[in-house]
Design a protein around this nucleic acid. Sequence first.
DNA 1: TAGATTGTTAATCGATTAACAATC
DNA 2: TAGATTGTTAATCGATTAACAATC
Lengths: 230, 230
Amino acid sequence: MTEDRQISIALPTIRRLPMYVAVLEKALQDGQTHASSSQIAGALGLESIQVRKDLAAVGVVGQAGVGFPVGELIVAIEKSLGWDNASDAFVIGAGHLGTALAGYRGFARYGLNIVALFDSDPAKVGQTVHGKKILPMEKFADLAARLHVRIAILTVPAEAATESAALAAEAGIKALWNFTPTKLAPIDGVIVERVDLAASLAVLSSRLASLVGASGAARPQAADEPESEV
Amino acid sequence: MTEDRQISIALPTIRRLPMYVAVLEKALQDGQTHASSSQIAGALGLESIQVRKDLAAVGVVGQAGVGFPVGELIVAIEKSLGWDNASDAFVIGAGHLGTALAGYRGFARYGLNIVALFDSDPAKVGQTVHGKKILPMEKFADLAARLHVRIAILTVPAEAATESAALAAEAGIKALWNFTPTKLAPIDGVIVERVDLAASLAVLSSRLASLVGASGAARPQAADEPESEV
DNA sequence: TAGATTGTTAATCGATTAACAATC
DNA sequence: TAGATTGTTAATCGATTAACAATC
Protein backbone atom coordinates (compact mmCIF):
# COMPACT_ATOMS: atom_id res chain seq x y z
CA MET A 1 0.00 0.00 0.00
CA THR A 2 1.07 3.57 -0.52
CA GLU A 3 2.06 5.77 2.38
CA ASP A 4 -1.10 7.80 2.19
CA ARG A 5 -0.53 10.62 4.63
CA GLN A 6 -1.23 13.49 2.30
CA ILE A 7 -3.26 15.29 4.91
CA SER A 8 -1.55 18.12 6.77
CA ILE A 9 0.72 19.53 4.10
CA ALA A 10 0.93 23.22 4.90
CA LEU A 11 -1.28 25.39 2.73
CA PRO A 12 1.50 27.67 1.46
CA THR A 13 3.34 24.55 0.38
CA ILE A 14 0.32 23.19 -1.46
CA ARG A 15 -0.02 26.49 -3.32
CA ARG A 16 3.56 26.21 -4.51
CA LEU A 17 3.36 22.61 -5.66
CA PRO A 18 1.90 23.37 -9.11
CA MET A 19 4.88 25.61 -9.89
CA TYR A 20 7.21 22.76 -9.08
CA VAL A 21 5.34 20.49 -11.46
CA ALA A 22 5.73 23.03 -14.25
CA VAL A 23 9.46 23.40 -13.68
CA LEU A 24 9.99 19.66 -13.32
CA GLU A 25 8.20 18.89 -16.54
CA LYS A 26 10.46 21.28 -18.34
CA ALA A 27 13.46 19.52 -16.79
CA LEU A 28 12.04 16.17 -17.84
CA GLN A 29 11.70 17.38 -21.42
CA ASP A 30 15.32 18.46 -21.29
CA GLY A 31 16.20 14.88 -20.44
CA GLN A 32 17.14 15.51 -16.83
CA THR A 33 16.60 12.60 -14.47
CA HIS A 34 17.42 14.65 -11.38
CA ALA A 35 17.01 18.23 -10.30
CA SER A 36 18.60 19.90 -7.30
CA SER A 37 16.66 22.11 -4.91
CA SER A 38 18.78 25.08 -5.91
CA GLN A 39 18.06 24.52 -9.59
CA ILE A 40 14.33 24.43 -8.94
CA ALA A 41 14.53 27.40 -6.61
CA GLY A 42 16.49 29.39 -9.18
CA ALA A 43 13.87 28.82 -11.83
CA LEU A 44 11.13 30.10 -9.53
CA GLY A 45 12.82 32.85 -7.58
CA LEU A 46 12.67 30.92 -4.31
CA GLU A 47 15.23 29.79 -1.75
CA SER A 48 16.58 26.25 -2.10
CA ILE A 49 15.82 25.45 1.53
CA GLN A 50 12.17 26.24 0.93
CA VAL A 51 12.09 23.87 -2.03
CA ARG A 52 13.66 21.11 0.06
CA LYS A 53 11.14 21.67 2.83
CA ASP A 54 8.25 21.60 0.38
CA LEU A 55 9.46 18.47 -1.36
CA ALA A 56 10.00 16.76 1.96
CA ALA A 57 6.32 17.43 2.66
CA VAL A 58 5.21 15.41 -0.35
CA GLY A 59 7.36 12.53 0.88
CA VAL A 60 10.02 12.31 -1.80
CA VAL A 61 13.62 11.86 -0.66
CA GLY A 62 16.44 13.32 -2.65
CA GLN A 63 19.92 12.00 -3.11
CA ALA A 64 22.71 13.93 -1.44
CA GLY A 65 25.10 15.27 -4.02
CA VAL A 66 22.69 14.54 -6.84
CA GLY A 67 19.25 16.03 -6.29
CA PHE A 68 15.67 14.87 -6.55
CA PRO A 69 14.38 12.31 -9.06
CA VAL A 70 12.32 14.37 -11.50
CA GLY A 71 9.83 11.77 -12.66
CA GLU A 72 9.13 10.39 -9.25
CA LEU A 73 8.67 13.90 -7.92
CA ILE A 74 6.07 14.82 -10.51
CA VAL A 75 4.09 11.69 -9.73
CA ALA A 76 4.29 12.28 -5.98
CA ILE A 77 3.18 15.90 -6.23
CA GLU A 78 0.28 15.05 -8.49
CA LYS A 79 -0.79 12.38 -6.07
CA SER A 80 -0.66 14.85 -3.17
CA LEU A 81 -2.83 17.23 -5.12
CA GLY A 82 -5.28 14.60 -6.26
CA TRP A 83 -4.27 15.33 -9.85
CA ASP A 84 -3.40 11.71 -10.54
CA ASN A 85 -6.90 10.74 -11.63
CA ALA A 86 -9.10 13.24 -13.36
CA SER A 87 -12.20 14.60 -11.67
CA ASP A 88 -15.34 15.62 -13.47
CA ALA A 89 -16.81 19.02 -12.71
CA PHE A 90 -19.93 21.02 -13.48
CA VAL A 91 -19.98 24.73 -14.11
CA ILE A 92 -22.88 26.59 -12.50
CA GLY A 93 -23.56 29.81 -14.37
CA ALA A 94 -22.95 29.94 -18.12
CA GLY A 95 -22.08 33.63 -18.26
CA HIS A 96 -18.88 35.12 -19.62
CA LEU A 97 -16.63 33.69 -16.97
CA GLY A 98 -18.30 30.29 -16.85
CA THR A 99 -17.99 29.78 -20.57
CA ALA A 100 -14.42 31.06 -20.51
CA LEU A 101 -13.47 28.51 -17.88
CA ALA A 102 -15.35 25.77 -19.75
CA GLY A 103 -13.19 26.55 -22.77
CA TYR A 104 -9.88 26.57 -20.96
CA ARG A 105 -7.99 23.54 -22.10
CA GLY A 106 -5.30 23.88 -19.45
CA PHE A 107 -7.48 22.35 -16.74
CA ALA A 108 -6.91 18.88 -18.17
CA ARG A 109 -3.37 19.21 -16.94
CA TYR A 110 -4.71 19.62 -13.42
CA GLY A 111 -6.95 16.59 -13.56
CA LEU A 112 -10.05 18.69 -13.95
CA ASN A 113 -12.59 17.78 -16.59
CA ILE A 114 -15.53 20.11 -17.13
CA VAL A 115 -18.45 18.00 -18.25
CA ALA A 116 -21.30 20.44 -18.66
CA LEU A 117 -22.60 23.87 -17.74
CA PHE A 118 -25.81 24.74 -15.95
CA ASP A 119 -27.84 27.91 -16.10
CA SER A 120 -31.23 29.06 -14.96
CA ASP A 121 -31.72 31.23 -18.05
CA PRO A 122 -33.93 29.34 -20.55
CA ALA A 123 -32.39 31.36 -23.36
CA LYS A 124 -28.99 29.83 -22.67
CA VAL A 125 -30.15 26.29 -22.03
CA GLY A 126 -29.68 24.05 -25.04
CA GLN A 127 -26.72 25.97 -26.39
CA THR A 128 -23.33 24.34 -26.70
CA VAL A 129 -20.11 26.12 -25.71
CA HIS A 130 -16.75 24.60 -26.47
CA GLY A 131 -18.46 21.31 -27.14
CA LYS A 132 -20.20 21.31 -23.78
CA LYS A 133 -23.92 21.59 -23.27
CA ILE A 134 -25.68 24.19 -21.22
CA LEU A 135 -28.33 22.40 -19.19
CA PRO A 136 -31.16 23.70 -17.01
CA MET A 137 -30.53 23.97 -13.29
CA GLU A 138 -33.41 21.57 -12.67
CA LYS A 139 -31.29 18.75 -14.01
CA PHE A 140 -28.30 19.48 -11.81
CA ALA A 141 -29.02 17.25 -8.83
CA ASP A 142 -30.00 14.26 -10.90
CA LEU A 143 -26.97 14.46 -13.16
CA ALA A 144 -24.53 15.12 -10.34
CA ALA A 145 -25.70 11.95 -8.65
CA ARG A 146 -25.74 9.82 -11.78
CA LEU A 147 -22.32 10.93 -12.99
CA HIS A 148 -20.81 11.04 -9.49
CA VAL A 149 -19.67 14.62 -10.01
CA ARG A 150 -18.15 15.99 -6.83
CA ILE A 151 -16.84 19.37 -8.00
CA ALA A 152 -18.84 22.43 -9.03
CA ILE A 153 -17.40 25.65 -10.38
CA LEU A 154 -19.49 28.59 -9.30
CA THR A 155 -19.66 31.46 -11.78
CA VAL A 156 -23.13 32.86 -11.17
CA PRO A 157 -23.82 36.52 -10.37
CA ALA A 158 -23.07 37.53 -6.78
CA GLU A 159 -26.73 37.57 -5.78
CA ALA A 160 -27.25 33.96 -6.84
CA ALA A 161 -24.13 32.57 -5.18
CA THR A 162 -25.57 31.50 -1.83
CA GLU A 163 -28.59 29.86 -3.37
CA SER A 164 -26.56 28.02 -6.01
CA ALA A 165 -24.10 26.81 -3.41
CA ALA A 166 -26.92 25.42 -1.29
CA LEU A 167 -28.38 23.66 -4.29
CA ALA A 168 -25.02 22.15 -5.15
CA ALA A 169 -24.47 20.96 -1.59
CA GLU A 170 -27.94 19.44 -1.61
CA ALA A 171 -27.03 17.59 -4.78
CA GLY A 172 -24.05 15.95 -3.11
CA ILE A 173 -21.31 18.24 -4.43
CA LYS A 174 -18.27 17.92 -2.19
CA ALA A 175 -16.11 20.76 -3.45
CA LEU A 176 -17.06 24.24 -4.63
CA TRP A 177 -14.65 26.39 -6.59
CA ASN A 178 -16.15 29.79 -5.96
CA PHE A 179 -15.42 32.50 -8.54
CA THR A 180 -18.16 34.84 -7.34
CA PRO A 181 -17.41 37.89 -5.23
CA THR A 182 -19.57 36.40 -2.48
CA LYS A 183 -17.89 34.89 0.55
CA LEU A 184 -20.03 31.87 1.28
CA ALA A 185 -20.91 30.81 4.78
CA PRO A 186 -19.39 27.42 5.66
CA ILE A 187 -21.47 24.50 4.43
CA ASP A 188 -21.29 21.23 6.30
CA GLY A 189 -19.41 18.59 4.37
CA VAL A 190 -18.50 20.89 1.50
CA ILE A 191 -15.04 22.23 0.76
CA VAL A 192 -15.10 25.77 -0.57
CA GLU A 193 -12.13 27.35 -2.28
CA ARG A 194 -12.53 30.89 -3.44
CA VAL A 195 -10.81 32.73 -6.25
CA ASP A 196 -10.94 36.19 -4.77
CA LEU A 197 -10.34 38.69 -7.54
CA ALA A 198 -11.06 41.62 -5.25
CA ALA A 199 -8.30 40.49 -2.87
CA SER A 200 -5.88 40.08 -5.74
CA LEU A 201 -6.76 43.45 -7.21
CA ALA A 202 -6.46 44.98 -3.75
CA VAL A 203 -2.84 43.87 -3.59
CA LEU A 204 -2.16 45.19 -7.08
CA SER A 205 -3.80 48.56 -6.69
CA SER A 206 -2.55 49.26 -3.18
CA ARG A 207 0.99 48.63 -4.32
CA LEU A 208 0.41 50.82 -7.34
CA ALA A 209 -1.10 53.54 -5.18
CA SER A 210 1.84 53.58 -2.78
CA LEU A 211 4.22 53.62 -5.73
CA VAL A 212 2.49 56.63 -7.26
CA GLY A 213 2.10 58.29 -3.90
CA ALA A 214 5.84 58.00 -3.38
CA SER A 215 6.71 59.66 -6.68
CA GLY A 216 4.35 62.61 -6.54
CA ALA A 217 0.66 63.42 -6.43
CA ALA A 218 -1.94 61.22 -8.08
CA ARG A 219 -2.88 62.95 -11.29
CA PRO A 220 -5.95 62.54 -13.48
CA GLN A 221 -5.44 60.99 -16.88
CA ALA A 222 -5.99 62.97 -20.07
CA ALA A 223 -9.59 62.83 -21.24
CA ASP A 224 -8.98 61.90 -24.79
CA GLU A 225 -9.73 58.77 -26.82
CA PRO A 226 -12.56 56.35 -26.20
CA GLU A 227 -13.47 56.42 -22.54
CA SER A 228 -15.98 53.76 -23.53
CA GLU A 229 -18.94 52.99 -21.36
CA VAL A 230 -19.19 49.56 -19.76
CA MET B 1 -2.32 67.16 3.60
CA THR B 2 -3.46 63.66 4.30
CA GLU B 3 -1.52 61.29 6.50
CA ASP B 4 -0.28 59.32 3.53
CA ARG B 5 1.43 56.34 5.08
CA GLN B 6 -0.40 53.62 3.23
CA ILE B 7 2.80 51.75 2.59
CA SER B 8 3.57 48.77 4.81
CA ILE B 9 0.09 47.45 5.52
CA ALA B 10 0.58 43.70 5.88
CA LEU B 11 -0.39 41.73 2.80
CA PRO B 12 -2.88 39.43 4.54
CA THR B 13 -4.59 42.55 5.85
CA ILE B 14 -4.78 44.10 2.40
CA ARG B 15 -6.37 40.92 1.06
CA ARG B 16 -9.08 41.14 3.70
CA LEU B 17 -9.88 44.81 3.19
CA PRO B 18 -12.28 44.28 0.26
CA MET B 19 -14.43 41.98 2.40
CA TYR B 20 -14.70 44.71 5.00
CA VAL B 21 -15.87 47.16 2.37
CA ALA B 22 -18.60 44.76 1.28
CA VAL B 23 -19.84 44.25 4.84
CA LEU B 24 -19.64 47.92 5.68
CA GLU B 25 -21.64 48.93 2.65
CA LYS B 26 -24.36 46.56 3.68
CA ALA B 27 -24.31 48.12 7.15
CA LEU B 28 -24.48 51.57 5.61
CA GLN B 29 -27.55 50.59 3.59
CA ASP B 30 -29.15 49.38 6.81
CA GLY B 31 -28.69 52.86 8.17
CA GLN B 32 -25.94 52.01 10.64
CA THR B 33 -23.52 54.80 11.42
CA HIS B 34 -21.22 52.57 13.45
CA ALA B 35 -20.19 48.94 13.38
CA SER B 36 -18.32 47.06 16.10
CA SER B 37 -15.37 44.81 15.35
CA SER B 38 -17.33 41.81 16.60
CA GLN B 39 -20.25 42.61 14.29
CA ILE B 40 -17.94 42.78 11.28
CA ALA B 41 -16.06 39.69 12.36
CA GLY B 42 -19.28 37.77 12.80
CA ALA B 43 -20.42 38.57 9.29
CA LEU B 44 -17.15 37.26 7.84
CA GLY B 45 -16.28 34.36 10.09
CA LEU B 46 -13.27 36.12 11.57
CA GLU B 47 -12.16 37.03 15.09
CA SER B 48 -12.97 40.52 16.33
CA ILE B 49 -9.39 41.14 17.37
CA GLN B 50 -8.25 40.52 13.82
CA VAL B 51 -10.76 43.04 12.52
CA ARG B 52 -9.55 45.62 15.02
CA LYS B 53 -5.94 45.02 14.05
CA ASP B 54 -6.77 45.32 10.37
CA LEU B 55 -8.78 48.50 10.82
CA ALA B 56 -6.02 50.00 12.93
CA ALA B 57 -3.72 49.42 9.95
CA VAL B 58 -5.82 51.64 7.70
CA GLY B 59 -5.64 54.36 10.32
CA VAL B 60 -9.23 54.64 11.45
CA VAL B 61 -9.87 54.91 15.17
CA GLY B 62 -12.99 53.45 16.67
CA GLN B 63 -14.98 54.66 19.61
CA ALA B 64 -14.85 52.55 22.75
CA GLY B 65 -18.29 51.26 23.61
CA VAL B 66 -19.64 52.23 20.20
CA GLY B 67 -17.61 50.83 17.35
CA PHE B 68 -16.14 52.15 14.12
CA PRO B 69 -17.68 54.88 11.95
CA VAL B 70 -18.96 53.04 8.89
CA GLY B 71 -18.73 55.75 6.27
CA GLU B 72 -15.35 56.98 7.33
CA LEU B 73 -14.07 53.43 7.34
CA ILE B 74 -15.18 52.75 3.78
CA VAL B 75 -13.47 55.89 2.56
CA ALA B 76 -10.27 55.09 4.43
CA ILE B 77 -10.09 51.53 3.14
CA GLU B 78 -10.72 52.60 -0.43
CA LYS B 79 -8.00 55.16 -0.11
CA SER B 80 -5.57 52.55 1.21
CA LEU B 81 -6.38 50.35 -1.74
CA GLY B 82 -6.16 53.10 -4.31
CA TRP B 83 -9.81 52.55 -5.11
CA ASP B 84 -10.71 56.17 -4.47
CA ASN B 85 -10.02 57.33 -8.01
CA ALA B 86 -10.61 54.99 -10.92
CA SER B 87 -7.72 53.64 -12.94
CA ASP B 88 -7.89 52.81 -16.60
CA ALA B 89 -6.65 49.44 -17.75
CA PHE B 90 -5.95 47.58 -20.97
CA VAL B 91 -6.60 43.90 -21.51
CA ILE B 92 -3.90 42.05 -23.44
CA GLY B 93 -5.34 38.96 -25.07
CA ALA B 94 -8.94 39.02 -26.25
CA GLY B 95 -9.60 35.33 -25.76
CA HIS B 96 -12.34 33.81 -23.64
CA LEU B 97 -10.96 35.03 -20.35
CA GLY B 98 -9.97 38.46 -21.59
CA THR B 99 -13.41 39.17 -22.99
CA ALA B 100 -15.04 37.76 -19.87
CA LEU B 101 -13.07 40.14 -17.69
CA ALA B 102 -13.76 43.03 -20.06
CA GLY B 103 -17.47 42.36 -19.58
CA TYR B 104 -17.41 42.13 -15.82
CA ARG B 105 -19.22 45.14 -14.48
CA GLY B 106 -18.09 44.56 -10.92
CA PHE B 107 -14.64 46.02 -11.52
CA ALA B 108 -16.07 49.53 -11.50
CA ARG B 109 -16.64 49.05 -7.79
CA TYR B 110 -12.90 48.48 -7.39
CA GLY B 111 -11.89 51.59 -9.28
CA LEU B 112 -10.86 49.61 -12.32
CA ASN B 113 -11.98 50.76 -15.74
CA ILE B 114 -11.19 48.56 -18.70
CA VAL B 115 -10.77 50.81 -21.70
CA ALA B 116 -9.88 48.48 -24.55
CA LEU B 117 -8.56 45.06 -25.46
CA PHE B 118 -5.51 44.19 -27.52
CA ASP B 119 -4.83 41.10 -29.54
CA SER B 120 -2.27 40.00 -32.09
CA ASP B 121 -4.84 38.03 -34.06
CA PRO B 122 -5.99 40.14 -37.07
CA ALA B 123 -9.26 38.21 -37.12
CA LYS B 124 -10.15 39.58 -33.71
CA VAL B 125 -8.93 43.11 -34.25
CA GLY B 126 -11.73 45.50 -35.08
CA GLN B 127 -14.38 43.57 -33.22
CA THR B 128 -16.17 45.08 -30.28
CA VAL B 129 -16.85 43.17 -27.08
CA HIS B 130 -19.03 44.63 -24.36
CA GLY B 131 -18.73 48.00 -25.98
CA LYS B 132 -14.94 47.87 -26.00
CA LYS B 133 -12.78 47.70 -29.06
CA ILE B 134 -10.24 45.03 -29.81
CA LEU B 135 -7.15 46.78 -31.12
CA PRO B 136 -3.94 45.47 -32.68
CA MET B 137 -0.95 44.97 -30.41
CA GLU B 138 1.00 47.42 -32.55
CA LYS B 139 -1.08 50.25 -31.14
CA PHE B 140 -0.54 49.27 -27.53
CA ALA B 141 2.52 51.34 -26.68
CA ASP B 142 1.24 54.48 -28.34
CA LEU B 143 -2.18 54.33 -26.71
CA ALA B 144 -0.83 53.42 -23.29
CA ALA B 145 1.33 56.52 -23.40
CA ARG B 146 -1.36 58.84 -24.74
CA LEU B 147 -4.04 57.69 -22.32
CA HIS B 148 -1.66 57.33 -19.39
CA VAL B 149 -2.78 53.77 -18.80
CA ARG B 150 -0.74 52.16 -16.05
CA ILE B 151 -2.49 48.84 -15.62
CA ALA B 152 -2.56 45.90 -18.02
CA ILE B 153 -4.53 42.71 -17.55
CA LEU B 154 -2.70 39.79 -19.05
CA THR B 155 -4.91 37.07 -20.51
CA VAL B 156 -2.81 35.74 -23.36
CA PRO B 157 -1.89 32.06 -23.82
CA ALA B 158 0.91 30.83 -21.55
CA GLU B 159 3.50 30.87 -24.33
CA ALA B 160 2.89 34.54 -25.08
CA ALA B 161 2.97 35.73 -21.48
CA THR B 162 6.64 36.66 -21.15
CA GLU B 163 6.74 38.50 -24.45
CA SER B 164 3.52 40.39 -23.78
CA ALA B 165 4.73 41.38 -20.32
CA ALA B 166 7.95 42.74 -21.76
CA LEU B 167 6.02 44.72 -24.35
CA ALA B 168 3.75 46.16 -21.68
CA ALA B 169 6.70 47.14 -19.51
CA GLU B 170 8.32 48.78 -22.51
CA ALA B 171 5.14 50.77 -23.06
CA GLY B 172 5.31 52.20 -19.56
CA ILE B 173 2.81 49.93 -17.87
CA LYS B 174 3.37 50.05 -14.12
CA ALA B 175 1.17 47.16 -12.94
CA LEU B 176 0.46 43.81 -14.53
CA TRP B 177 -2.47 41.68 -13.41
CA ASN B 178 -1.33 38.30 -14.63
CA PHE B 179 -4.04 35.71 -15.31
CA THR B 180 -1.78 33.40 -17.31
CA PRO B 181 -0.34 30.20 -15.84
CA THR B 182 3.13 31.62 -16.40
CA LYS B 183 5.08 32.91 -13.44
CA LEU B 184 6.81 35.96 -14.81
CA ALA B 185 10.35 36.84 -13.91
CA PRO B 186 10.55 40.14 -11.99
CA ILE B 187 10.50 43.20 -14.24
CA ASP B 188 12.17 46.34 -13.04
CA GLY B 189 9.68 49.04 -12.13
CA VAL B 190 6.64 46.87 -12.76
CA ILE B 191 4.35 45.46 -10.12
CA VAL B 192 3.09 41.99 -10.99
CA GLU B 193 0.14 40.41 -9.24
CA ARG B 194 -0.81 36.95 -10.34
CA VAL B 195 -4.16 35.20 -10.20
CA ASP B 196 -2.89 31.68 -9.82
CA LEU B 197 -5.71 29.32 -10.70
CA ALA B 198 -3.45 26.29 -10.44
CA ALA B 199 -2.58 27.19 -6.84
CA SER B 200 -6.24 27.68 -5.99
CA LEU B 201 -7.25 24.42 -7.64
CA ALA B 202 -4.37 22.69 -5.84
CA VAL B 203 -5.86 23.68 -2.50
CA LEU B 204 -9.31 22.54 -3.57
CA SER B 205 -8.32 19.21 -5.03
CA SER B 206 -5.81 18.26 -2.34
CA ARG B 207 -8.44 18.83 0.31
CA LEU B 208 -10.92 16.84 -1.72
CA ALA B 209 -8.39 14.05 -2.18
CA SER B 210 -7.59 13.82 1.52
CA LEU B 211 -11.30 13.84 2.33
CA VAL B 212 -11.96 10.93 0.03
CA GLY B 213 -8.79 9.17 1.13
CA ALA B 214 -9.79 9.48 4.77
CA SER B 215 -13.14 7.73 4.34
CA GLY B 216 -11.78 4.62 2.69
CA ALA B 217 -10.57 3.84 -0.78
CA ALA B 218 -11.16 6.40 -3.50
CA ARG B 219 -14.68 5.41 -4.21
CA PRO B 220 -17.65 7.05 -5.81
CA GLN B 221 -19.47 8.28 -2.76
CA ALA B 222 -23.12 7.68 -2.12
CA ALA B 223 -25.03 10.71 -3.25
CA ASP B 224 -26.49 11.00 0.18
CA GLU B 225 -25.07 11.71 3.61
CA PRO B 226 -22.71 14.56 4.16
CA GLU B 227 -19.22 13.22 4.67
CA SER B 228 -18.53 16.19 6.91
CA GLU B 229 -15.20 17.14 8.46
CA VAL B 230 -12.94 19.91 7.29
C1' DT C 1 -22.50 54.83 36.84
C1' DA C 2 -22.58 50.34 34.20
C1' DG C 3 -21.93 48.01 29.94
C1' DA C 4 -19.76 47.71 25.71
C1' DT C 5 -15.96 48.08 22.99
C1' DT C 6 -11.54 49.84 21.73
C1' DG C 7 -6.43 49.77 21.45
C1' DT C 8 -2.16 48.24 23.54
C1' DT C 9 1.02 45.04 25.18
C1' DA C 10 2.32 40.32 25.55
C1' DA C 11 1.91 35.33 24.24
C1' DT C 12 1.34 31.98 20.81
C1' DC C 13 1.58 29.92 16.58
C1' DG C 14 3.23 28.69 12.11
C1' DA C 15 6.13 29.45 8.24
C1' DT C 16 10.52 30.80 6.50
C1' DT C 17 15.32 30.92 6.79
C1' DA C 18 19.97 29.60 8.61
C1' DA C 19 23.55 26.44 9.86
C1' DC C 20 25.75 22.28 9.34
C1' DA C 21 26.50 17.32 9.97
C1' DA C 22 25.35 13.31 7.15
C1' DT C 23 25.57 11.22 2.76
C1' DC C 24 25.96 10.15 -1.98
C1' DT D 1 38.65 11.13 -1.81
C1' DA D 2 36.48 15.72 -2.90
C1' DG D 3 32.49 18.27 -4.19
C1' DA D 4 27.75 18.75 -4.19
C1' DT D 5 23.58 18.42 -2.09
C1' DT D 6 20.37 16.59 1.14
C1' DG D 7 17.75 16.53 5.53
C1' DT D 8 17.66 17.80 10.36
C1' DT D 9 17.76 20.81 14.12
C1' DA D 10 17.66 25.47 15.69
C1' DA D 11 16.86 30.54 14.99
C1' DT D 12 14.21 34.08 13.08
C1' DC D 13 10.42 36.37 11.45
C1' DG D 14 5.73 37.77 10.93
C1' DA D 15 0.93 37.12 11.68
C1' DT D 16 -2.69 35.72 14.69
C1' DT D 17 -4.66 35.42 19.06
C1' DA D 18 -5.15 36.48 24.09
C1' DA D 19 -5.62 39.44 28.01
C1' DC D 20 -6.95 43.53 29.95
C1' DA D 21 -6.60 48.42 31.20
C1' DA D 22 -8.44 52.62 29.12
C1' DT D 23 -12.38 54.93 27.44
C1' DC D 24 -16.73 56.23 25.62
